[in-house]
């Protein structure tokens, strides 16, 4: 934040389109000066700080199925863009099948902020520190995007282009995120290292997800995603490959954690140094793997 942060939000127009197509067209016509609005918890901070200068905020929370939270054993979980994090956490379906997602939400800011904050908003901000993004990545999240040309899908794995940058084009509105059905017995862990016990942004965030998978030599599939240690939220394919092809034991986890450490490229900033972050990626990845292993019943 700057010393010149605005005391209040600067002037803009709040726009509430009647349909998704109207919203997409408006956003496309006002490229560079309009932004879709979900919870607003990041947008407002950035506007007050003079970082965003949009003339229009286009409220898309009420459109189409953005308010939907649904689960189907065959199709999986669908979270509308407007579904706030507290609702995600409280959902028995999420708790039963995607506990990792609830755990990630719990680490975000405070309860009252999560009444507004959304997972889709977290994703669209494309912050490398986004706490829920790791879970969404390892759970195989796919975004439903509505643009001027209608609907399309964007897999999360190829969504991020850099800090704050995504593949979205003017007019694009992410309306929901979908997750395939979780493999039976899958388990995951999100370890967030912040400066405070709760509520802080992460210095390092490590998401690990694993399940028994007969198709792999080790009999297991493990994935890891890292927060705050690269320009974008980071999946670690090398870790997945290592644990697919080596017998699962403490040494394999240790080696996998080293691979995660090698994959990341943290920087020094006000929250932590690159050196500490590197060290923590190894330590916490190993710990998260062990915790996941335990959760898997081992």
């Amino acid at each position: 934040m700057s010393i010149n942060a605005h005391p209040e939000l600067p002037e803009f127009d709040y726009v509430r389109p009647a349909t998704l197509m109207e919203a997409s067209r408006f956003l496309a016509e006002h490229a560079g000066e309009a932004r879709p609005l979900l919870g607003g918890t990041d947008i407002f901070v950035r506007m007050r700080d003079g970082f965003y200068h949009d003339k229009y905020l286009v409220d898309v929370k009420h459109l189409d199925s953005t308010d939907e939270l649904s689960y189907d054993p065959q199709r999986g979980l669908k979270l509308g863009a407007g579904v706030n994090m507290n609702r995600v956490m409280a959902s028995p379906m999420v708790q039963a099948h995607y506990a990792l997602l609830a755990e990630a939400c719990r680490s975000v800011a405070s309860y009252q902020l999560r009444t507004r904050a959304t997972i889709v908003g977290n994703i669209c901000n494309a912050s490398p520190a986004g706490d829920t993004i790791g879970a969404c990545l390892v759970l195989g999240g796919v975004l439903n995007v509505h643009g001027v040309g209608g609907y399309r899908q964007e897999p999360l794995a190829t969504f991020f282009r850099g800090p704050g940058k995504t593949v979205l084009q003017p007019g694009d509105i992410v309306t929901s995120i979908e997750f395939p059905p979780a493999p039976a017995g899958a388990a995951g862990v999100y370890i967030k290292l912040g400066r405070n016990t709760w509520s802080d942004l992460s210095i390092v965030g490590v998401t690990v997800y694993g399940y028994a998978d007969a198709g792999r030599a080790s009999g297991y599939r493990f994935q890891a995603a890292l927060a705050s240690v690269a320009p974008t939220p980071l999946l670690v394919p090398a870790l997945e490959e290592h644990l697919a092809s080596h017998p699962i034991n403490a040494e394999a986890f240790r080696q996998a954690a080293r691979l995660a450490q090698a994959a990341c490229s943290p920087i020094d900033d006000v929250r932590g140094s690159a050196r500490y972050r590197k060290a923590m990626v190894r330590t916490l990845t190993e710990k998260a793997l062990q915790m996941t292993w335990k959760k898997l019943g081992n």
Binding site: G40, T41, F44, V45, N86, S110, L113, T115, R116
Partner: peptide
């Protein structure tokens, strides 16, 4: 005015929100 301190918390439809962030 940044959603951090919680002094502005009110109930919105029964749920607490930072009223500076809405």
């Amino acid at each position: 005015n940044a959603g951090e301190c919680g002094a502005c918390t009110v109930l919105l439809n029964g749920e607490p929100v930072n009223s500076c962030m809405i």
